[in-house]
Design a protein around this nucleic acid. Sequence first.
RNA 1: GGGCUCGUAGCUCAGCACGGAUAGAGCACAGGCCUCCUAAGUCUGGGGUCGUGGGUUCAAAUCCCACCGGGCCCGCCA
Length: 645
Amino acid sequence: MITMSNPLNKLREECSILLKETITESYPGVAEFEIKFTTPPNVTMGELSSPLCFQLSKQIKKNPFQVAIELVRKIKHSSLISSVEAVNGYINFHVNIEEWSKLVLETVINDSTYGYLKTGDPEKVIVEHTSANPIHPITIGTARNAILGDCLAKLVKKRGHDLSIHFLVNDMGRQVALAVFGWKLLGTPEPNMRGELFVGGIYASTNVCIELKKVNLELKKAEEKEDVSLITELQEELEKYEDAAIDLEKNYPLIFNSIKEKISLVEDPSSEIVQINTAYETNQPDVVKLFRKLVKICLDGFQESLGDLGIVYDAFDYESDLVWAKKADEVLDNLRKTDFVEEDQGALVLDCDGVANIYGLKQRWGLSINHEIPRLVLVRKDGTTLYPLRDMAYSIYKFSLADKVINVIGQEQALAQLQVRIALAAIGKMDMGDNQLHYGYEFVKLPEGKMSGRLGRYVTLQEVVDKSVELAFDEVTKRTPDLPEEQRKSIARMVGYGAVKYTLLSVDANKTVIFDWDKALNFETNSAPFIQYSHARTCNIIKRAESKPNSDYGLLTDPKEREIISLLASFPEVFQSAADQLKPVEITSYANTLADKFNSFYSALRVLNAEKPELIGARLTLVEAARIVLANSLNLLGIEAPERM
RNA sequence: GGGCUCGUAGCUCAGCACGGAUAGAGCACAGGCCUCCUAAGUCUGGGGUCGUGGGUUCAAAUCCCACCGGGCCCGCCA
């Protein structure tokens, strides 16, 4: 069954058998070793290659070049292999073009889900991603999380796992309380713009106004004391907030000015925020209603922005629900029963290094042995709990639903994520520690520096997407002005969304991205539009074919055709590797290569008016197969495959 | 100070897990290609001490060690 849907594996097995036969015949008694295969640099050198003579030559003390020549002389052929040659010590296999092309192409065109090799060991998997704080819009930075997470989810699901996608709603803590405070000042109005922008505007405006007030006050004190260095420092702070205030006033004039005016009447905003926060934590109904409503406004905005891109969730888990159900307290109780929790200056602290050493976690999880893992504060000296404790409770919740948990969370939380796993191990939940994976990713930065929700300084996903779609629309209109506007818009959406997603998926997650408009909106080679365009071309050829003559696959001898066939054959293993290693980049890179090879083929060889009908048939099959694989790889990336552009 | 991570062409990045043939793309630059299935394309060209130095190996961008440079994190934020 596996060889049926994985032609490359079949080819490799055949070559492997032939090589083993020849080795035992020519050099009886050599110890068995794993036969490696590589792809030759150029398809004209063959479809598959093995450097085994380098290994073999050591055992039998002969020159590898000579060994290769001897082996090739004796090796048999098979139905898939037409010739074998020795080149520079490598053994290169050339396929029987007719058999191989038939195998690959017919495997593809008879299976619209070609490539999605199913795992033999399906598990229940939770992917938690996005989990953006519900106090500012989805920025191009949080979008990286969402887009990566969504792609990982697709990979896991297509691999055959039982998948559930979760979003943790971070509604506890001062930040949301601050936004609620600001919203109350405004008289809790309904949003008059997309919810995430509305809440983001309120949050940043409130924060900036409070900080301005605070810094001004401190500055006055410092001036009285004539503390010069403090004055300079505070003046810089002040400048930062004043700049932010100018932007906020420009972007949210009504919200900002109203908050600025009303906040001046509040004597001590900070203590009011603390009060609001405490009321929420203790589940006081009127405050809960406010919190939940404001958070909902923001989440609705998230779901609009991300939903446009096809990113959806199975569950939204509220942090507050965990707290109210005393789940964090339960974790704390269990931790306190161990010997690893100690009191320090009134706070409760977990001795992570102690746990790791006693349970051998460093070896178990491949961490540096001599490195001392920092301690973790669980409870403040005022008795309130900290985030990691809630995160532990959340992990336990997730494991009540799944065997494996993948958390898509910024790389800066790597230590905190490790500490959660350590805590789970400490309370006897070793399997959870083992099966929780932190999928870290790096920031998206603006050329002028980091984004900041608190200052309202960010590039939102929505504005990037809008620009991208607009640009795509202009492009479509330029090319095909006669299409009805609705259709042009629909194409522009596919292209515009695809461009943004591809840009974020095509660089490795642990590399910082400096956001660049020109690059994000690049529609040329190595972009989603480039791949989509190739797909549209395949569709166009198929659409224009009046009939499909019988195929003579033996005629697909051009290197450009052979290259495409080899690539198609490798797709299942590319998928498998990308899914098991959680590396979307492998798919973007594969899709780009396939599109590239297809375009070369397209410009050099005719399909519909090829020399012979049997060649037309064979090339049409090739085009159809390429279409399926381009579409299936785009699908994994969450990018739509338009039939025309 | 310690941990993690990144360092590949002028710029942006693949390739590194599991070592294999002349290290690949794109952008930018120079020059060709639309009486022919959509030129969002294609072809040709220049451009590389793969951060540095050792080591392992028949073979190192890839593995090991040391160092240099950037980023992030290291007790009461989330």
